[in-house]
Design a protein around this nucleic acid. Structure first.
Lengths: 143, 143
DNA sequence: TTCAATGCAAAAGTTTTGCACCTCT
DNA sequence: AGAGGTGCAAAACTTTTGCATTGAA
């Protein structure tokens, strides 16, 4: 809680309960929620919170490099407080979006044997497929 | 023209001028257009074409594996008739989206030294940065 | 006190849907 | 002739914007 306020202040942002709540939620979730989900989750604890503020807040955070926007092909964007370059997996069965901690698939553009004619500043790798628990469920179902 | 009709027929689709026009356009462009752009481009030659039909057509094509949907973080989806796995570049200066023909950055999930606990069916790599012509323009501007 | 942030409502933009009519096969 | 596709308009969603009010510094 204390740390979050600190971080926002260091980025030159005015510290408000709404901003603390949004950043805190993103720091402590693995779910890569979208704006709507963030809003729904926080409106219980922050009854005055509005969806527009969530959007504006996420926009600030994105600009300042506090969060990363992620679009896996749904109608809406998801957000991730882990801003370093890392791949994501999207399960096409249950829809879950997860971070993939895999060195081989991270920072790919820095490992090329032949340089590209394109100056890369950041990369995004998304793997679509079936997650472990959905594969397990499928196997048990077919027995 | 003939080939396009053939392809649609083989996929079990009824052949209509609208479907031929959309698929033909995607086959012959490098631009990864979105639905709106496809519609605007085709409405000159196909005056009765409607935007809803473009969306419905793209949806069919996607389902049948004739096109690939691509979301690079804009408001809308782009479409690509090259359906094999290949990376894309997005220039953050001019906004152009291009195919990157690079073997090292293609089919990454098949080259892993350690298998993942996630069954990958397809992958999407997007490189954000500055394209060659925008870098050239920037250099000339700073002289 | 002052300037920026919030919340509301309205607007903008993209995509989907329902339905009557049309057209491929 | 019949199944399926098209076009229109309305609706559904996500995101942005304008503005009066509130709150942090």
């Amino acid at each position: 809680m204390k740390e979050t306020a600190q971080i926002l202040r260091e980025k030159g942002l005015k510290v408000t309960p709404q901003r603390i709540a949004v950043y805190n939620m993103l720091l402590h979730t693995q779910d890569h929620p979208n704006a709507e989900t963030i809003y729904r989750t926080l409106e219980t604890s922050n009854p005055t919170m509005s969806l527009a503020t969530v959007y504006k807040t996420l926009d600030f955070f994105k600009q300042l490099g506090l969060v990363q926007e992620l679009n896996v092909g749904e109608g809406s964007s998801r957000y991730d407080a882990k801003v370093y370059c890392h791949p994501h997996t999207v399960c096409t069965v249950c829809g879950c979006v997860s971070d993939l901690e895999n060195e081989e698939l991270s920072n790919l553009h820095t490992k090329l044997s032949v340089p590209l004619d394109f100056e890369v500043t950041c990369e995004q790798l998304i793997l679509y497929g079936t997650c472990a628990s959905c594969r397990k469920a499928a196997r048990e179902h077919s027995l």
